[in-house]
Design a protein around this nucleic acid. Structure first.
Length: 271
DNA sequence: ACCCAGGAAATTC
DNA sequence: GAATTTCATGGG
């Protein structure tokens, strides 16, 4: 059982799944990527213009089309963004196969709470241990992301095995506010950006940057522009302090090209 | 030993 | 209110 999408352009699995927007995909020796999305364990491959989701049910075709954002013409987005600044054009050309995934909102929330003052390698490890310890087992060594209800019942000490330190109480507060309905993540889709952001920031441990990440990666609000230490440096050094608002409705996509480009070109920022 | 990591809360000025 | 310190953990 597998799903095949034909004539796929502007998608490179390594660029998309290892560019810091998600933390649960692992590359195999054969070039495939193992991941779990919405409780479905699959292996994704690209072969020419084909995208193959091995292990997926045909009924989930729309889910995977949605997840990889296959209905948006990224060539057109890149053409537009590239007119705005020469470094933008260079960053898009550097990793032209990046797409912004539609991740589960709750997974994005918890993942980016964990991301604060942390590095990507360790974030991935913490998320993995979170799933192994508290997610439903759905296969050999495969686990769903934990539910809000499950995490809401835990104490910070219960989370000791994931070794996320001071973030334990933030994870629990986020889970509790989702579980008890204080925050309805799906309802945030209908809200204007700033209002949805203010809702998310009611969670202890969710500030400006984490909220921007949840809106962009979990709720697909593409105007979001998370400013982390890399992006602040990039905007200052590579874009001469340009206002991100210039990137408009696709700012989040611009951000991802620039973030990935900057992370893989540290020499552009001294020493 | 130090400094940093896809920050934000707590404390101090 | 704005600036500084602290918060676990792991790697360089």
């Amino acid at each position: 059982m597998s799903i095949v999408f034909e004539n796929i352009a502007d998608l490179d699995l390594r660029q998309t799944l290892d560019c810091g927007q998600c933390f649960r995909w692992r590359e195999r020796d054969d070039g495939g990527f193992e991941g779990v999305v919405r409780g479905r364990a699959v292996t994704a491959y690209m072969d020419g213009g084909l995208l193959i989701i091995d292990g997926a049910e045909e009924d989930d075709r729309d889910l995977w089309r949605d997840y990889f954002d296959l209905d948006l013409d990224y060539s057109e987005v890149k053409r537009y963004l590239s007119t705005l600044h020469p470094v933008m054009a260079e960053a898009a050309e550097f990793a032209p196969g990046i797409r912004i995934l539609r991740q589960e909102p709750f997974e994005a929330l918890i993942s980016f709470i964990i991301s604060q003052n942390n590095n990507i390698k360790r974030i991935s490890g913490i998320v993995e241990r979170l799933c192994e310890n508290f997610g439903e087992q759905i296969g050999e060594g495969r686990f769903a992301f934990p539910t809000a209800d499950r995490l809401a019942q835990l104490t910070p000490d219960d989370l000791a095995p994931i070794r996320a330190g001071f973030r334990h109480r933030y994870i629990i507060d986020g889970a509790q506010k989702v579980a008890d309905g204080t925050i309805d993540l799906e309802a945030l889709r209908a809200l204007p950006y700033d209002e949805a952001k203010a809702e998310l920031m009611k969670i202890t441990g969710v500030g400006v940057k984490v909220a921007d990440c949840v809106l962009l990666y979990g709720l697909h609000k593409l105007e979001g522009f998370p400013l982390d230490v890399w992006m602040k440096r990039a905007m200052a050094v590579l874009f001469d302090g340009m206002d991100p608002a210039v990137f408009g409705e696709y700012a989040g996509i611009a951000q991802q090209y620039i973030f990935h480009y900057s992370r893989l070109h540290p020499e552009k920022f001294g020493t």
